[in-house]
């Protein structure tokens, strides 16, 4: 289908974009890569009075590694981050999870920040942000704030962003020498995951486990992984606590079952 009519504005600077957001508020939608927004507009699931296209704002198309933090600007595509030279060494979990985001063709245009802004509960980038305990940098004319991942993602498609705020970047603390695993179950490779599971083990052996697609937002927890039996107990108990939800693709019970098996696999992959 075709989208309903909208006004289109292409600001050249962040300041111009912020002025437009201050003027239009929640009547406006930010267009970056458009790989989540344009399908929803085409399917007429949403409509917008104004689209503010930030994809050509040069100051947002930057990746910086500074003081142990990887900062990814709002116009940076998923494939551009995937090609970042130090990604596999400094941020191995991002390198493991990003290839599962959409398809090669959508990663060429889809942005890292856009996927986080969209906040689909089973999509990979919100889970990755939660696993890194990263933060989202929000800017408005009245000021700039950095919101931790756990406060940014509130529920399904719901975030802490105010209508006049622009996500200018997301920050992932770098974690060299981490052992990582990222697995998901999808109907077809590249489709939205039914559930996605990530695990990371630091130098001290502590294992963090995270899951998307079980709750309205990604959740993470430290799990004891001394041996397979205690890990399975911890995972089983957590599965009952998060419960999961029913949708077209899977019942909550099936989600719990998938989670127990997939989580045991990723914990075994990173534990030594």
């Amino acid at each position: 289908m075709k989208p309903r009519p909208f006004d289109y504005v292409q600001p050249d600077t962040v300041d111009e974009a912020l002025a437009l957001l201050a003027e239009h508020g929640d009547e406006a939608r930010i267009l970056a890569g458009g790989q989540s927004l344009i399908p929803m507009l085409n399917l007429r699931l949403i409509e917008a009075a104004v689209l503010i296209d930030i994809s050509r704002i040069a100051e947002l198309d930057t990746i910086r590694s500074d003081g142990g933090v990887l900062e990814v600007g709002a116009a940076v595509t998923q494939n551009k981050l995937l090609a970042w030279p130090n990604l596999a060494r400094e941020s191995a979990l991002l390198a493991a999870g990003l290839p599962l985001v959409g398809h090669f063709q959508t990663r060429n245009k889809g942005t890292v920040c856009g996927s986080i802004a969209h906040a689909d509960p089973s999509s990979e980038l919100p889970l990755l942000l939660a696993m890194y305990a990263g933060e989202v940098v929000l800017r408005a004319q009245r000021g700039t704030r950095a919101v931790p991942a756990k406060d940014f993602h509130k529920d399904m498609l719901t975030t802490a962003r105010e209508p006049d705020e622009l996500i200018v970047a997301v920050r992932f603390p770098e974690r060299p020498r981490e052992r990582v695993a990222f697995r998901e179950i999808a109907r077809r490779h590249g489709d939205f995951a039914i559930i996605a599971v990530a695990a990371a083990a630091g130098a001290n052996g502590a294992v963090t486990l995270g899951v998307g697609g079980m709750a309205g937002r990604p959740v993470t927890r430290a799990v004891a992984a001394h041996d397979a039996a205690s890990a399975a107990d911890a995972i089983g108990q957590w599965a009952e606590e998060i419960k999961g939800y029913d949708d077209l693709h899977a019942s909550a019970a099936m989600r719990r079952d998938m989670f127990r098996k997939l989580a045991a696999n990723v914990v075994a992959e990173v534990a030594q």
């Binding site: 296209d53 063709q105 245009k109």
Partner: peptide
């Protein structure tokens, strides 16, 4: 030079 979905791109872009 980069493969993209033309249905997920606005002509004006």
């Amino acid at each position: 030079g980069v493969a993209v979905r033309s249905c997920l791109t606005l002509a004006v872009q």
